[in-house]
Deep mutational scan, measured.
Amino acid sequence: LRTVEMKKGPTDSLGISIAGGVGSPLGDVPIFIAMMHPTGVAAQTQKLRVGDRIVTICGTSTEGMTHTQAVNLLKNASGSIEMQV
Results as ranks from 00 to 15, higher is better:
L1W: 06
L1D: 05
R2K: 11
T3E: 04
T3Y: 09
T3W: 02
T3K: 12
V4G: 00
E5Y: 15
E5K: 15
E5F: 15
M6Y: 01
M6G: 02
M6P: 00
K7T: 12
K7F: 15
K8R: 11
K8C: 14
G9R: 10
P10W: 05
D12Q: 15
D12M: 07
D12S: 09
L14Y: 09
L14G: 02
G15H: 00
G15T: 03
G15W: 04
S17M: 13
S17T: 15
S17N: 12
S17F: 11
I18H: 00
A19K: 09
A19P: 03
G20N: 05
G20Q: 05
G21K: 02
G23F: 00
G23E: 05
S24P: 02
S24R: 03
S24W: 10
P25F: 06
L26T: 10
L26N: 12
G27H: 00
G27W: 03
D28V: 03
V29M: 10
V29W: 05
I31W: 03
I31V: 11
I31N: 00
I31P: 08
I33T: 06
I33D: 05
I33R: 03
I33G: 02
I33W: 04
A34P: 01
A34N: 11
A34W: 07
M36N: 00
H37R: 09
H37V: 10
H37N: 14
H37W: 06
P38R: 06
P38A: 07
P38D: 10
P38Q: 08
T39I: 03
T39E: 15
G40F: 07
G40M: 04
V41M: 11
V41E: 07
V41Q: 09
A43V: 06
A43L: 03
Q44T: 08
T45P: 04
T45Q: 08
T45L: 04
T45M: 06
Q46C: 10
K47H: 10
G51N: 06
G51C: 04
R53C: 10
R53I: 15
R53L: 13
I54A: 02
I54R: 02
V55N: 06
V55K: 08
V55F: 08
V55Y: 09
T56D: 08
T56K: 14
I57H: 03
I57N: 01
I57M: 08
I57T: 00
G59N: 09
G59A: 02
T60S: 11
T60P: 00
T60I: 14
T62N: 05
T62G: 01
T62C: 09
E63I: 10
E63C: 09
G64P: 01
G64E: 07
M65D: 03
M65F: 01
H67P: 09
T68L: 12
T68P: 09
Q69L: 01
Q69E: 15
A70P: 01
A70K: 01
V71S: 14
V71P: 05
N72K: 13
L73M: 13
L73S: 06
L73D: 03
L74K: 04
K75D: 15
K75S: 13
K75C: 10
K75R: 13
N76Y: 08
N76P: 02
N76W: 06
A77P: 08
A77D: 06
A77I: 12
S78P: 10
G79D: 12
S80Q: 12
S80Y: 11
S80K: 14
S80D: 14
E82H: 12
E82G: 06
E82P: 07
M83D: 06
M83S: 02
M83A: 05
Q84T: 14
Q84D: 05
Q84C: 10
